[in-house]
Simulated scan of single mutants.
Amino acid sequence: MTDLSAWAWAALGLAAVITGLSKAAIPGGSTLAVVLFAAVLPARTSTAAMLLLFIVGDVFALIAYRRHAHWPTLLRLAPAVIAGLLVGFAFLALAGDGLVRRAVGVILLVMIAITLWRRRREDRRDAAAAPRSGILLSSTYGALGGFTTMVANAGGPVMSMYFLATRTQVQVFLGTSAWFFAIVNLVKVPFLAGLGLFTPSVLLMDLILAPLVVVGALVGLRIARRIPQALFDRLVIALTVVGSVYLLF
């Protein structure tokens, strides 16, 4: 921690605020926070540090949206998500920081590309078309979501795309996402602890940054219905592309 510059701490602080905002108001916005953490810290360390901050944000997401969850959807996703988590854990255990860092960049770039493709496709699709659902869809998104959230805390875009594909209503989207990540993030704790990633430095860093997550979440709850979503999405995508390219090279 003493090796971090003032700019590094500023980036981490901004990432903490964005984490709170994303949990309370902007689903998927946490991708930018992941990029900022991975750009400042070693890849595996950033994954552990972000996890604890996400759990703080999950508390506020549950407070706001806990009653809107669709539990059959969560149960349908569970087997594939567990498989993805186990594969992601094996990858973290075997891969070095350099490979994990590049994997974070690749994962985020792929998620952005698929998100943009899906949006373009949705714009062209007839609004009256029947929503897609089924075991194949839930298995694919569930496994990829489990893997990406274990390796890079980047499961948000994957699950957002799943809920878009199934045409989930907004409130159900937010409630189901809140419970999904609250449960998954708690499940991840013993896995990362087993790899020895929760060092005293990581815990102290999160203790310092946690109040900023709370601030971001409180602000998010106030502006959830006022923020210009389209503009924010474009900014997040643009900054995430820049950050992802930086992680790769």
Rank of each mutant, 00 (worst) to 15 (best):
residue 8 A to Q: 15
residue 9 W to Q: 00
residue 16 A to K: 06
residue 20 G to M: 06
residue 22 S to F: 06
residue 23 K to S: 00
residue 27 P to R: 02
residue 30 S to D: 10
residue 35 V to I: 14
residue 35 V to M: 07
residue 44 R to Q: 15
residue 46 S to V: 01
residue 46 S to L: 01
residue 50 M to D: 06
residue 51 L to E: 12
residue 56 V to Y: 01
residue 57 G to F: 07
residue 59 V to Q: 00
residue 65 Y to A: 06
residue 65 Y to I: 01
residue 67 R to M: 09
residue 68 H to Y: 13
residue 68 H to V: 03
residue 69 A to F: 08
residue 70 H to E: 14
residue 73 T to R: 14
residue 76 R to H: 10
residue 77 L to H: 06
residue 79 P to L: 09
residue 80 A to K: 09
residue 80 A to W: 03
residue 90 A to K: 06
residue 90 A to C: 05
residue 92 L to T: 08
residue 92 L to S: 07
residue 92 L to H: 03
residue 94 L to V: 15
residue 103 A to T: 15
residue 104 V to L: 11
residue 110 V to L: 15
residue 112 I to W: 02
residue 114 I to W: 13
residue 116 L to A: 00
residue 118 R to Y: 14
residue 121 R to H: 14
residue 123 D to A: 15
residue 124 R to V: 02
residue 126 D to K: 10
residue 128 A to H: 14
residue 128 A to I: 09
residue 129 A to P: 00
residue 130 A to G: 04
residue 130 A to P: 08
residue 132 R to Y: 02
residue 136 L to S: 12
residue 137 L to M: 12
residue 138 S to Q: 14
residue 141 Y to D: 05
residue 150 M to F: 03
residue 153 N to K: 05
residue 169 Q to S: 15
residue 170 V to F: 13
residue 175 G to A: 11
residue 183 I to M: 02
residue 186 L to N: 00
residue 188 K to L: 02
residue 193 A to C: 05
residue 196 G to Q: 10
residue 197 L to P: 10
residue 198 F to W: 12
residue 199 T to N: 07
residue 199 T to Q: 12
residue 200 P to N: 07
residue 200 P to V: 08
residue 201 S to V: 01
residue 205 M to E: 10
residue 210 A to P: 09
residue 210 A to M: 06
residue 211 P to W: 02
residue 211 P to C: 00
residue 215 V to C: 01
residue 218 L to P: 07
residue 220 G to I: 07
residue 228 P to I: 05
residue 228 P to C: 01
residue 230 A to Y: 10
residue 230 A to R: 15
residue 232 F to D: 07
residue 239 L to P: 02
residue 241 V to W: 05
residue 242 V to G: 03
